[in-house]
């Protein structure tokens, strides 16, 4: 078995009466790209802050590279790169000054670990004299990632690096992360975008402070037990309303120009077609499909 990088055991955290994390446990192997997937308020930031030694858990223990997050916080800080959800570099320092500052804080130099960040930093190097506050969103992100990695961390923790970022920049960011995997760094990323789960080696789906599932994306999809159908017709919203009213419907969700439908029991397609044709639907189209992570997440949410 690969050595463990992160081991979380029964972690709970409460803010006044809000339970941010409830008995969370899972493990992450060294060198893995791990995704923590869930909406706002699921507890993603709390968990990452505990691992980065910025927040104390109320209950439970966690280790990062065999260091305890409470007792050995100083050691963990040396080997961790942390990118907070909000852009937190110095806006009034230039690109290069920010990078040098972070290198110095960790007792290293830009030159020493340049190879590690080269691939990312080369995109912003032409603007190295520009102040960080004047960079575009995508460039800020590249700088933040460069700064988080300049001390060659063994573990990189990124809190929602792609939130509020457009679809193209998101794609580029993930391409960078996947290239980083070759450097033997454990990478933890949180995101509210379900489609990003499929790019991770392993994911934890989180909702309201609880883990719904931890596994590879393939296994999470494989564990989906229902027969999922993709359904469309000329009037999609009316189709959705009629399917919500159908007695055998288990769940029906919009996915772009289609519906994803599951039934309580196996109903013959003819019966379903008849039900819809009686209601005047035209251009009916239905076929069985395999679920994506969002289907799985919603099914797990309903069960929980």
């Amino acid at each position: 078995m690969d050595p463990l990088s992160v081991n979380i055991r029964n972690i709970s955290k409460t803010y006044r009466d809000a339970e941010a994390l409830q008995d969370v446990s899972f493990r992450i192997k060294r060198g893995e790209l791990f995704g923590l997937i869930g909406p706002d308020g699921a507890g993603k930031t709390s968990l990452f802050r505990i691992l980065a030694t910025l927040l104390l858990p109320d209950k439970g223990t966690a280790t990062v590279e065999d260091y305890d997050v409470v007792r050995d916080y100083k050691e963990i800080r040396k080997i961790t790169g942390y990118m907070a959800g909000r852009f937190s570099l110095y806006q009034d320092l230039t690109v290069e000054e920010n990078l040098k500052f972070y290198a110095t804080v960790f007792g290293t130099t830009m030159e020493e670990n340049y190879d590690l960040i080269k691939d990312i930093y080369s995109h912003i190097e032409p603007y190295k004299k520009r102040r960080a506050g004047k960079l575009s969103g995508g460039m800020k992100q590249k700088l933040a990632l460069s700064c988080a990695m300049i001390h060659k961390p063994r573990i990189l923790i990124m809190d929602e690096p792609t939130t509020g970022v457009d679809a193209v920049s998101r794609k580029e960011f993930w391409e960078m992360l996947i290239r980083l995997k070759g450097h033997d760094i454990t990478i933890l990323v949180s995101t509210p975008y379900m489609d990003e789960a499929e790019l991770c080696d392993q994911v934890a789906l989180v909702q309201s402070g609880r883990i719904l599932s931890v596994d590879t994306p393939q296994n999470i999809i494989g564990a989906y037990r229902r027969r999922l159908m993709d359904l469309s017709a000329s009037d999609l919203y009316r189709l959705k309303e009629d399917m919500e009213a159908y007695e055998h419907t288990h769940s029906v969700y919009l996915f772009g120009q289609k519906l994803h439908l599951t039934l309580k029991k196996d109903v013959a397609e003819e019966a379903l077609t008849e039900y819809l044709e009686e209601r005047g639907h035209r251009d009916l189209n239905m076929k069985s499909i395999s679920p994506n992570i969002e289907d799985c997440f919603m099914e797990l949410m309903v069960k929980a």
């Binding site: 869930g38 909406p39 706002d40 699921a42 509210p192 919203y237 969700y253 997440f297 919603m298 949410m301």
Partner: peptide
């Protein structure tokens, strides 16, 4: 303006029902 950012997938769809 980005009304559903960070909202869970079920609520996101319910939000679109309201829009519709």
């Amino acid at each position: 303006d980005e009304p559903t950012g960070g909202v869970d997938p079920i609520t996101r769809r319910q939000f679109w029902d309201l829009i519709y």
